[in-house]
Design a protein around this nucleic acid. Structure first.
Lengths: 217, 217
DNA sequence: GATTGTGAAGAGCTTCACAGCT
DNA sequence: AGCTGTGAAGCTCTTCACAATC
């Protein structure tokens, strides 16, 4: 009996991990993989893996495991990876350019439809196959492209304004690289990627390890 | 009575947020800030803020709040931000170069001591004030610089090897940008930053929102 | 009156353990 | 024998609520 009331956030995060493992085994599509094996590859306990996968109903066969190909398809569908997500980028500085060039995005179904920059000197230049557009064109271009995802890679001071522009243009989710908490209306999702936060987190954990006699898990 | 048994990971993550708010108020160093205000700025409930801050003992004054300057100092110390962290970068592709140029790292106490690349054609070039070194020099340079943090910005296939080299050289923490789960000995901390994971997460949340009649928090 | 610090309740996530299937 | 699916137990983090303090 399916357990798909609602997929929790922790479960969603782990789904990405499982997906990565399955992706690396597409060549063995007909083979089976056990929850134990999936767990070992992702650092997740086997019982947890089974609980997570139970969201889709009973895909596994006792004594055997999960069909790689079948599970891969189900997971892709559940995570929304069975479609192409039109995506736009705002901010073509160092980070923005690196993101545009990042090869895995396209492979995973994220397709950049446009790139924007406030700097008039950047507008018109081509990077990674896109011509940088001015902010004035944002709303029209986004609507026309029906992009649902926006990446914000602008300085902190500009992030809030840009976020509002994206929302007004109909964007449904923002991947935010600016070190700022965005206030967005309900119905618009945000995921933050903050390099400084990440480094601080690391420094914090190093201190934990050094401070303790016993190492903290 | 202090509650500093052990600072949990969720608490640690929020500390970064508080720190950011306090940082933006250094000009009002003598003023006070309440848990409610700190919470509003960071999206955290006030009771949670107080619980988190109670780790340092009783810094707050009932009816008033927390001294901005005092709290800032305590937090910086607790998060290990009262020192300079010597840091090295491996991989000087698009992402690596963007990280080296990221201005906030230096501001927050992270100091790049060296950059390495496997590509012989890159070695010797200067980026952001550093001369790219070959991998052969990694161990010696890292030991000499006494760097504790390593950033991995290399292709997935190379990440595990690089991680091992960093650990052998005495690194205590790794910020990993490669989409790979690193297996490291106890005592070495890892924080992963995976752009594709983040985007997948976002796509997943957008789907949640669209699927539901009621919006999920 | 405003705000802290905190015990207790609540919610959510993880792990255990085992019946049941192949 | 091996493995799944899952109820129940265990654990951790969050929220509530209020006495104590300024």
């Amino acid at each position: 009996m399916p357990n798909s009331d609602r997929i929790s956030k922790p479960t969603g995060r782990r789904m990405s991990l499982y997906l990565r493992v399955l992706h690396s085994r597409i060549d063995q599509a007909n083979a089976a993989i056990s929850s134990k094996e999936l767990g070992a590859q992702t650092g997740v306990k086997d019982a947890q893996v089974r609980k997570d996968l139970a969201c889709f109903g009973s895909l596994g066969r006792p004594g055997v495991g999960y069909g790689v190909s079948e599970l891969h398809n189900q997971l892709r569908k559940a995570m929304g990876m069975d479609q192409t997500w039109k995506t736009v980028l705002v901010g073509t500085g160092n980070i923005g350019r690196a993101l545009l060039a990042y090869p895995r995005f396209r492979n995973e179904g994220f397709d950049f439809a446009a790139a924007f920059d406030q700097d008039k000197k950047a507008v018109g230049k081509r990077i990674s196959g896109l011509t940088i557009q001015s902010m004035d064109e944002l709303k029209r271009t986004v609507k026309k492209s029906s992009a649902l995802i926006g990446l914000i890679a602008v300085p902190p001071a500009a992030a809030a304004t840009v976020a509002q522009m994206l929302v007004d243009a109909g964007i449904r989710g923002i991947l935010n690289f600016a070190p700022v908490r965005l206030h967005l209306p309900q119905g618009v999702a945000v995921v933050n990627v903050d390099f400084t936060d990440a480094l601080e987190q690391l420094a914090f954990e190093i201190r934990l390890v050094k401070a303790d006699v016993k190492v903290v898990k």
